[in-house]
Simulated assay, not measured.
Amino acid sequence: MRVAELAALTGTTVRAVRYYHHLGLLPVPAQRAGWRDYDLSHVARLSRIRWLAQAGVPLEAVGRVLDGTAPPTGAEAGTGTDTGTDTGTDPGTSSSLSPEGACQGAVVDDLSTALARAREHLAEVTRQRGGEYPGP
């Protein structure tokens, strides 16, 4: 299918699809006869992107949530915040958090932040309508 069909199926715009390509959230499909040829995997991924974005997850975090990747932190990012010393040992034997654990932690943090924002928004809307939000 073409980009306009993909956008229509997922309730978005061609411009948004191209923006998600630019951010690296949505892979660019192969071309067939000079046109990008989208398939159902693109529909599924774009639907997930839209659902997470509408739920309040920042676009920077959407990729981490979908792919299970974490941003580099500490020494990996070159910030110098790693207080340990390099002992030349296998990183897998360290007592620090594993990359998988760090990834899960980053995703949980992203989703927790989005949930907190959604709750704050719900409380504000409820107050504006004259009711009281009972909270979580």
Rank of each mutant, 00 (worst) to 15 (best):
A44G: 06
D86P: 11
R45H: 08
A70I: 10
V57T: 14
T69F: 08
E100M: 08
A118C: 03
T13N: 05
L97N: 01
G68R: 08
W35R: 15
E120S: 08
G63P: 07
W35H: 14
A55H: 09
V57P: 13
R48H: 15
H121C: 08
A118K: 05
D86S: 14
V14F: 00
T126I: 00
V3H: 06
G56M: 10
D109S: 13
T12W: 00
T73F: 03
G11E: 02
A4S: 15
V108T: 15
S96F: 10
Y133G: 00
S94N: 07
P136S: 08
G92F: 06
R36W: 07
H121G: 12
R117T: 11
L111A: 07
E100T: 13
T89I: 09
W35Y: 14
T126R: 00
L23Q: 05
P72N: 03
A7R: 11
V28L: 07
G88F: 02
R15T: 10
T113R: 14
P71L: 09
A106P: 02
V28P: 01
L66N: 04
R18D: 06
L6N: 13
L66M: 06
D39S: 15
V57S: 12
L122A: 08
A75R: 12
P72E: 01
T89W: 04
R32A: 09
D67F: 01
S98L: 08
S98W: 02
L26M: 09
T79G: 06
G34S: 09
R15G: 06
T13C: 06
A102C: 01
L6Q: 12
R129G: 10
G63D: 04
T10H: 07
D67M: 04
G105W: 10
A75Y: 00
G130Y: 01
L52C: 09
R117W: 03
R15Y: 01
W35F: 12
G74A: 11
T113M: 06
T12N: 02
A77L: 14
D82P: 10
Y20L: 04
E124Y: 02
A75E: 08
H121L: 13
A114W: 00
D37A: 14
T113C: 06
L46I: 09
V28R: 13
L26H: 05
A30Q: 11
L115D: 07
A4H: 14
A106D: 03
Y20R: 06
V65M: 06
A77Q: 10
A44T: 13
L25N: 03
P27Y: 03
S47Y: 02
L23W: 00
P91M: 06
D82L: 13
G56Y: 07
T10C: 15
R36D: 04
A102Q: 10
E60Q: 12
P136Y: 00
M1L: 15
L25Y: 02
T81Q: 12
Y38G: 04
